[in-house]
């Protein structure tokens, strides 16, 4: 209360604020309260759970690498250049952030699927994307790429170009400026973006189930496993949900720790 007064906030703001906080925390408490702690360990280490968790970590890791490889250049182009239609491109790139993931999955299906836009090309190359782990990585990259681009573009804009200008007048070629000045300066933002992308990829469900299918060890990631376990073994679903909550908490802690270090 005292701090609210000194901050000049009207006191009544605390009531909806507390309600909002409770609204977010309470479900997590409810989830934790439903966990069968006696069987927790055996539930989260069952073969199917372990397979799903390992697959999730593997695909999310790969998707994060792809996000960095594709997203860093995208953020650089958006933050450091201006061209006609840039605003439109930016909006389109951010679309997966607000698109229902299932819509993303359908769109991917009509792009990379057998009957899709690139289906024949992919066939000719002898690649099989449908129902493969590659499809999972594609779906995860699709939904998590904007997180990296948004976060990095913001950092780039905040950092400004003054250091880059100085570096170029010191004789540094554009590639040297990028490597020795731009990227080191935005490294915290890049790390935060990568962690967010990883978290989004780890939680990806809708696009995956629509586009990649669901098969243990190949395409059934942890969220899909949770959804399936609900059918027969709600206790396992709850236990695995808690695992994802813990991972999410760790991720947020990592991002916050990073940004505080700035």
């Amino acid at each position: 209360m005292a701090s609210a007064r000194t901050s000049g906030l009207p006191r009544w703001v605390l009531v909806p604020a507390a309600a909002g906080a409770l609204f977010i925390v309470l479900p997590l408490v409810a989830l934790a309260s439903r966990v069968q702690w006696g069987s927790f360990w055996s539930l989260v280490t069952s073969d199917s759970s372990r397979e799903a968790l390992l697959l999730s970590l593997r695909t999310s890791g790969t998707a994060t690498v792809l996000c960095v490889v594709l997203g860093v250049p995208m953020a650089l182009v958006l933050a450091r250049t201006s061209f006609r239609g840039q605003a439109l491109i930016r909006s389109l790139v951010l679309l997966p952030l607000v698109l229902p993931p299932v819509v993303g999955g359908i769109a991917l299906l009509y792009t990379f699927g057998r009957q899709g836009l690139l289906g024949e090309t992919i066939d000719v190359l002898g690649l099989q994307i449908a129902f493969s782990t590659t499809a999972v990585v594609i779906a995860q990259t699709f939904v998590s790429l904007p997180f990296l681009v948004v976060s990095l573009e913001g950092t780039l804009r905040t950092a400004g170009q003054r250091y880059e200008v100085v570096a170029s007048t010191l004789g540094a070629r554009p590639t040297t400026v990028l490597r020795r000045v731009t990227l080191p300066l935005v490294l915290p933002g890049l790390a935060a973006g990568a962690v967010l992308s990883f978290a989004r990829a780890l939680g990806e469900f809708g696009a995956t189930i629509t586009f990649a299918g669901s098969l243990e060890g190949v395409t059934r990631t942890l969220p899909l496993e949770i959804y399936l376990q609900r059918e027969t073994d709600p206790d396992a679903a709850v236990a695995l949900s808690l695992v994802l909550v813990v991972v999410a908490v760790l991720v947020i802690g990592l991002v916050r720790g990073r940004s505080n270090a700035l």
Binding site: V166, S168, T169, L170, P174
Partner: peptide
């Protein structure tokens, strides 16, 4: 001539 090839210190 791009800035890095000008030899102009700022």
């Amino acid at each position: 001539t791009p800035p890095h090839q000008r030899g102009t210190g700022l």
